[in-house]
Amino acid sequence: MKERSSDIISRDISRSILRGELAIQESLQSERDLAAHYKVGRPTIREALQRLERDGWITSRKGMPAIVNDYWKQGNLMTIVTILQHEEEIPDAFIIHMLELRVAITPAYFRDALENNRLKVISLFAPFKDVADTAELYAEFDWHIQHGVAMLSPNPIYLLILNSFKDVYIRMAEKYFNDSTHRAASRDYYDHLLKRVLDGDIQQAEQAVRDMMETSIELWKQKMNGGRKK
């Protein structure tokens, strides 16, 4: 399917913002000038600008050109997704940010799912014994667990958040699981977690999830620091 001109233009402008070619609080060109620059009609420019505003990159102003946002402070989930789509490789520091987000939300949706659908949570672990020791398959299994558990939580917001990051999550997980020690730590974690779930000890299962999320952060920081503990 041919990509729409408005999508191409919105991506080009967001890349200019990321590269610093358009500074925070800087005004964009007028719709007329943008239309001339991109050789399209003003409705196409208007559509591109509406998308950029929706995704947190700019703020429109009545009768004046739009202004560039501080996207880290005024953006939204789609802003982050767009940033990472422009990256050939996810930055190490951003993986830390994502792992910190997991600490904040993953124990909560695991607890909710276990309180409401414990047997279905147990069934999600069925493929675990057959997961080969590769980064790609570990990433797939990790997504399978996280997505499946979030789906079993009665709070749909958790699933919406995860779905927003699916492609990014898998790319990040593959990079994380490239390290064999990270795969080993996760295998031990899933063994331990499954035992807690089978025992019906929801509190200990939730704590196991939180502990592993925090361990993941420390393991990645060590990797960034050349394998040395800080």
Rank of each mutant, 00 (worst) to 15 (best):
R46C: 08
M64I: 09
E88Y: 12
L49E: 01
I90T: 08
W57L: 03
E31C: 04
G56V: 02
Y109F: 14
I105H: 06
P43G: 08
L22F: 14
I105T: 11
L77E: 03
E89F: 14
P43M: 11
M98W: 15
A66L: 07
K62I: 13
I96F: 04
G75C: 12
E26L: 02
I105Q: 06
V68P: 02
R118A: 05
E115R: 11
L18D: 04
F94M: 07
E87A: 15
T106Y: 06
A48S: 03
K120M: 03
L114M: 12
E47L: 14
E21I: 06
A113V: 01
Q74H: 08
L77S: 10
L84I: 09
D55R: 14
Q25C: 08
L124E: 00
R42F: 03
N76H: 03
Q50F: 11
E88G: 12
R42M: 12
W57F: 15
R15Y: 04
I122V: 15
R54P: 01
I96W: 04
Y71A: 05
V68G: 02
V103T: 15
L99Y: 07
K120H: 03
G20Q: 06
I95E: 01
E31H: 07
Y38F: 05
A35F: 00
L84T: 06
S60M: 11
A48L: 02
H97S: 13
A93R: 14
S123F: 03
K39W: 05
I95G: 01
T79R: 07
A108V: 13
E87C: 14
R15H: 09
T59H: 13
L101Q: 11
P43V: 09
G20M: 09
N69E: 00
G63H: 11
E21Q: 14
I96P: 02
G56T: 01
E26I: 02
L114S: 02
R15S: 13
D112H: 13
R51D: 04
W57Y: 13
S123H: 09
N69Q: 06
T79Q: 05
A113N: 03
R51G: 06
A108D: 05
I83W: 11
H97F: 11
I24R: 14
A23C: 10
Q85N: 10
E31P: 00
F110Y: 14
L28P: 01
R32C: 00
I83R: 14
N69T: 00
I67Q: 03
N116V: 04
E47V: 13
L101Y: 07
D70Y: 13
E47W: 07
D70R: 15
R51M: 10
L101F: 10
E31R: 08
P43D: 12
I45T: 02
H97P: 02
Y38W: 03
M78S: 14
L34H: 00
A93D: 14
E31A: 06
E21W: 12
K39L: 09
T82C: 07
I58F: 12
R42A: 08
Y71G: 00
P91K: 10
L114C: 04
L119D: 07
W57T: 00
K62F: 13
K39G: 07
G41C: 09
E87R: 15
Q25V: 05
